[in-house]
Computed example of a mutant assay.
Amino acid sequence: MNLPNRLTMARIILIPVFMTFLLLKIPKGHELFAHQDLVAAIIFILAAATDGLDGYIARKRNQVTNLGKFMDPLADKLLVSAALISLVQLGEVTAWVAWIILAREFAVTGLRAIAAVDRVVISASPLGKIKTVTQIIAISAILLHDWPLSLIGIHIGQPFLYVALFFTVISGLDYLLKSRKLLHK
């Protein structure tokens, strides 16, 4: 397995570790878990950072594989979905926002599956990439409780979540419009 695929697999393996630190409530006094929210945020940010890194390395080293093409978007969806569902459980994100984001991910995955039957590849669009970046920024800010900006009274997590929601909907519509020929067969 090449390095880009290892990074993608590491992203998937980090998801339950992230969720454990975020959701498992350990009684006070256990030093390892004293800052478990911060540890969860750092794990999420590191996992999210592997997304750009694995693609960059794969293209630079000419190591793009079918496994990578399949696993990379899946790893992204799993990471964002795990974070959003966890944040809904913690009361940090409203369920309807998470539902719209997750519904778009399922819809685009479905469109890609339909296209794959016809041997058509639907590549990530610039809007889809903006969507992913805004989602990662929003989730990271919420996990960090807007630190360090919260120290001066600036809160970006929730506003950025709505920016991410906007790009989620717009990019989903873009994929739908580009795929309408496939849907009319």
Results as ranks from 00 to 15, higher is better:
A47L: 10
N62K: 13
V88M: 12
I114L: 14
A141R: 02
L161W: 05
A58T: 05
L182Q: 03
A141K: 02
T168P: 01
A164Q: 07
F166Q: 00
I136P: 02
I130M: 14
A41K: 09
V108M: 05
F18D: 00
H30V: 14
E31T: 11
I122L: 15
P16K: 01
N66F: 06
L67V: 14
F160N: 03
A48D: 01
S81N: 01
W96N: 08
A141P: 02
F167V: 00
H155F: 10
A10T: 15
V17Q: 04
K77S: 06
L79P: 10
A116G: 12
G91W: 08
L127S: 02
D51G: 12
M9V: 14
V64Y: 04
A48G: 07
A10D: 05
L182H: 07
F160R: 08
D72K: 08
L78T: 13
T134H: 03
G68M: 00
V17N: 11
V80D: 02
P159R: 04
N5S: 04
Q63T: 13
I130E: 10
P126N: 14
G110N: 06
G29W: 13
D72E: 08
I154W: 05
I154D: 07
D118V: 07
K129Q: 04
A103T: 11
L176C: 02
A10I: 12
F167K: 01
Q89A: 13
S150K: 01
V93K: 07
Y175T: 03
Y175L: 01
R59P: 04
S86R: 01
Y56T: 13
A47P: 07
K178S: 11
K69E: 10
R112N: 03
P126Q: 12
A10F: 14
Y175D: 02
N2W: 11
G55H: 09
R61M: 12
L149E: 01
R11N: 13
I130P: 06
I137D: 03
W99R: 07
Q158W: 13
V163M: 03
H30M: 15
Y175G: 03
A103Q: 07
Q36V: 13
W96L: 07
A83V: 10
S81H: 00
L78F: 13
V108Y: 00
H155V: 05
